[in-house]
């Protein structure tokens, strides 16, 4: 009888509508409509000023053959892979911080401070770190006796990876925070029980804690990959996608086309393709990480 009541209450259509409507309305109006519009602008030859001309799928066809676009897509994918891999490090840090070691609370606060800084500050910091002649990194390298340290942001073979580091670092706090909250949500009793059974801290972490926050971990995989595929900020400020496109990503390429080259139609088409690519990747990840039985307490 209890379950019947439960089912009835929990499938009340009116309540479901009331609870989801605000979110859906906002997203439909302010995100979905602009998305559709950008797909539509992608069908136009339009410099953003004056009349537009319908040219069908031409922009999309050109984009598919545009080597610059595919290069920028490759860079975005590389960033996504590195970001996803770095989640493992963040998870490890969060596990340490959430365990009962002395000073964990204090350390956690310090660890998260960089995420509070705006991109402007972070970009300036890393530009100073990477400066070829006065920068911190090269001062250290030269101090260690390396005569010709690389010009990190000028060398087309290095720049992409050099700029990944601040991007990944910038988001460290974000993921550590999420993992930390999830870990703290694990009932103390489970951990205590395992301790009594003689499990080591490492075993507790890997066999109990990690499986319990798997759902959260899956969400962060999606967040990091989606976030990377549309990433823009530091790239734009630190290198502008240069030199000669060596650090261009999809979003910065789109911005350049729409805002600097006045090719708004083509820029919109690239923006729309970015969305499609992200969508496909997300569906694949969701499929790959889907588990048959959800973990329950």
């Amino acid at each position: 009888m209890g379950l019947n009541v439960m089912n009835k209450v929990m499938s009340n259509k009116w309540i479901i509508f009331l609870y989801t409507f605000p979110a859906l309305l906002l997203i439909a109006v302010l995100i979905v409509i602009p998305l559709i519009l950008s797909g539509y602008f992608g069908l136009m030859d339009w410099d953003g000023i004056g009349a537009m001309e319908f040219i069908g799928l031409e922009n999309y066809i050109v984009a598919l053959q545009d080597t610059k676009f595919w290069e920028s897509a490759l860079h975005s994918f590389l960033l996504a892979i590195f970001s996803a891999l770095s989640l493992l490090i963040y998870l490890a840090v969060a596990l340490i911080l959430a365990s009962k070691i002395k000073g964990a609370n204090f350390l956690r606060k310090i660890y998260l401070i960089p995420m509070l800084l705006s991109s402007v500050a972070i970009a300036q910091l890393w530009v100073k770190i990477y400066n070829p002649s006065n920068g911190m990194l090269n001062s250290i390298l030269m101090g260690l006796g390396i005569d010709n340290p690389p010009a990190w942001l000028a060398d087309p073979n290095i720049v992409l990876y050099a700029i990944f580091i601040p991007i990944i670092w910038q988001y460290a706090g974000f993921y550590i925070l999420i993992y930390y909250a999830a870990l703290k949500n694990i009932p103390e009793s489970l951990v205590e029980a395992a301790k009594i059974d003689g499990a080591t801290p490492l075993q507790i972490a890997l066999k109990i804690k990690v499986p319990l926050i798997m759902n959260v971990f899956k969400v962060t995989i999606v967040l990091s990959i989606v976030g990377s595929l549309k990433y823009f900020d530091l790239i734009y400020v630190m290198t502008g996608g240069g030199p000669n496109g060596a650090s261009e990503v999809m979003a910065s390429y789109m911005y350049k086309l729409a805002f600097a080259s006045y090719d708004f139609g083509y820029g919109s088409a690239i923006g729309f393709l970015l969305l499609i690519i992200t969508l496909i990747v997300t569906v694949i990840i969701r499929k790959l990480t889907a588990s048959k039985d959800e973990i329950q307490y």
């Binding site: 995100i31 602009p34 549309k230 820029g267 970015l274 969305l275 969508l279 997300t282």
Partner: peptide, 17 residues
């Protein structure tokens, strides 16, 4: 639908918005 909202690049949305 909500997840699609994650994927929109800001500069695509700026002019329509």
């Amino acid at each position: 639908i909500i997840m699609v909202g994650l994927m929109i690049p800001i500069h695509s949305a700026l002019i329509p918005l």
